[in-house]
Amino acid sequence: MNDVLFWTLAVLAVASGVMVFRFDSMARATFSLLTSLLCVAGEVLLLGMDYLGIVIVLMMTIEMAIMAVFMIMYMMNPAGLMPMTMIHNKRGAAVICVGVFVLLAVGIFLAPWPGRRGKPPADVTMDLGMSLMGPQMLTMMTLGMALFATIVSSVVLATRRGRYDRLGDDLRAERSDDPVRGGVGR
C-alpha cells in the first residue's frame, strides 16, 4: 500500500514538474509546480514526518499565491493571460535539467548510505524544534534577521513614494499625503 502511494506520488511529482515547462500559461505553470510540491509533501508525510509534510503544504500554497501577486508587480504580461513559456534557451535548459536530475538520482543510488543506528524519536516534531531552536538557535536568529533585512530593503528599493513624499522634505507634515487613505487615521 505504502509502495503504491509512494510511486504514485513520485510519478505525479516528476510529471507535474515537467509540465511546468510544457504549459504556455503562467497560471497553469504555477499550479503545476504547486501540484508537484504537494506531491512531495505527500512523500514527506509518508515518511512519518507529519509536521514537515503539513508545513510544506501550507508554505508552498501561500508561496505560489504570493508568486501570483509578484506576477502582477513585475511581469510584462501582468494578468498572465497571454501565452508564455517558462524557458529561455530551450535546448540548454532541457539539457541542464535532465543532467541535474540524472546526476542526483544516480548519486542517491550509488551513495553508501549509513545503516540506521538507534530508533526514530517518538515525537519527530519536538525533536525537529529542539534541534532547530537548541544548538542552531544563533544560526536561525541570524538567518531570520538577514531575511527580514532583505525584505525591508527590497520594499524600500521597490517603492516609488518614500517618507519624504508622504510627510514633506522636513518630515513635519500634519497629515501624510497618500493617494489612498489608510485605516489608522494617519
Partner: peptide
C-alpha cells in the same frame, strides 16, 4: 491529527489559492 492546527491553516491556504484560480 498530531499537527491538526497546522493542517487547518494549510487547508485555509488552499482555499485562498482556489479563489484566485
Amino acid at each position: 491529527l498530531a499537527d491538526g492546527i497546522v493542517w487547518f491553516n494549510a487547508m485555509e491556504a488552499l482555499a485562498w489559492a482556489a479563489v484566485w484560480l
